[in-house]
Design a protein around this nucleic acid. Structure first.
Lengths: 202, 202
DNA sequence: CCAAAAATCCCCATTTATAGGGATAAATAC
DNA sequence: GTATTTATCCCTATAAATGGGGATTTTTGG
């Protein structure tokens, strides 16, 4: 059968949850693919899997394996395996991932199967996006501190500058990023791996 | 075989994600159970499933289907089906659920299979544990709106209440959660799947 | 039915944040 | 070597958040 080409192909499934990996594996057998299968249950095992095993062509990864270092991790993975195809299975809050196909929790059985088939049997090049680091070093420091939940005053004390300076930096940050809410800055900082969510002040 | 007793038993799988339901179904067949199977992909369909179909004995539910009304929903389910057994499959940050077995993303294949077997073949009463100070429905709404980057005033307008009420709710939220910064509330809301990070106001 | 919890609203005072408008010294870029 | 960005600081005024004290009505549980 046509799918036999996949019988030597290396596929890695990265999901912390055994049940979820099992679901993916079942789908693979449903659409008639029996590849060399590798499983990873963390970002670390995923990366070591990719580095130890050559030519992993298909990577099916749960977003929570990547989160919160999503973008950085994807860059790593893309660097290590430039020709790997990426399928991201989102659970709950998800964001589009450059150069990857997305399956969300809202996809029906039909949609999921179609996306899996497309993933394996079609190969359109994905778009690469613009990753801009437009903040200055000091602005980044201020952003980080504010996103961690510190007030302007506290940020000033932490960075040994006047509160006026903090406010100035924040004006620039707001203008450059187009983000004016603290909630938005926090999400931005977490998503860009500037802060760890568990470090955010209560 | 011994499992044949389950061939008439009614089991409901509630998970938004088709892949996850598929994983659960595969496990059932692995441990040799072929029950009357019902699937639900939301809290609503779960509840209607339970009310329309009598004697659903086993309910396997993803935590995200319940959240954020977790405890309330569980109470509802327990009320409607007092003798139903509950297996909660957590994904990501999870909290203990009174009267239910828990499967977490850290469980290995072995542990998952054992827990499923225990779930179906043994019936110890579950321990009820400390009900961590959870937020009321309205408080959750306020938390979500604030975490999305809306000011108290905007939140009041969105929820059709006075700003004083918003402030009152926020006081309760701060007290219950021990989180006083907007950054912290945002992280909490994202981590508990109350909001999607991409929805946070810039 | 009664007690507790939840949801709604109000006042006051203080602290922070935001939105304008600026300025100056030092480093970077072209 | 001049132009630009960066980092620092200041002022004013308004808007918003916080912390403290309340109150009332409705819902919910036992």
């Amino acid at each position: 059968m046509m799918q036999s080409e996949f019988n030597k192909t290396k596929v890695c499934i990265a999901d912390k949850h055994f049940i979820h990996r099992l679901g993916v594996k079942t789908i693979l057998s449903v659409i008639g693919i029996e590849p060399d299968l590798y499983e990873a249950d963390s970002l670390e095992t995923t990366l070591s899997c990719l580095s130890e095993i050559n030519d992993v062509k298909y990577l099916i990864v749960a977003q929570d394996v990547l989160h919160p270092k999503l973008n950085k991790s994807l860059r790593k993975i893309k660097n290590q395996n430039p020709n790997a195809k990426l399928l991201v299975v989102c659970d709950g809050p998800c964001q589009a991932v450059p150069g990857a196909k997305l399956i969300t929790e809202n996809d029906t059985r039909q949609e999921v199967l179609e996306k899996f088939q497309n993933f394996f049997f079609h190969s359109e090049p994905e778009s690469t996006d613009n990753d801009s680091a437009l903040l200055s070093e000091r602005e980044t420091e201020v952003l980080k501190t504010v996103a961690l939940g510190y007030s302007n005053k506290e940020t000033a004390e932490k960075l040994f500058i006047s509160i006026n300076t903090v406010i100035s930096h924040r004006k620039n940050i707001t203008e450059k990023l187009g983000i004016k809410t603290i909630a938005g800055l926090t999400v931005y900082a977490v998503m860009h791996d500037l802060i760890k969510p568990e470090d955010v002040k209560a």
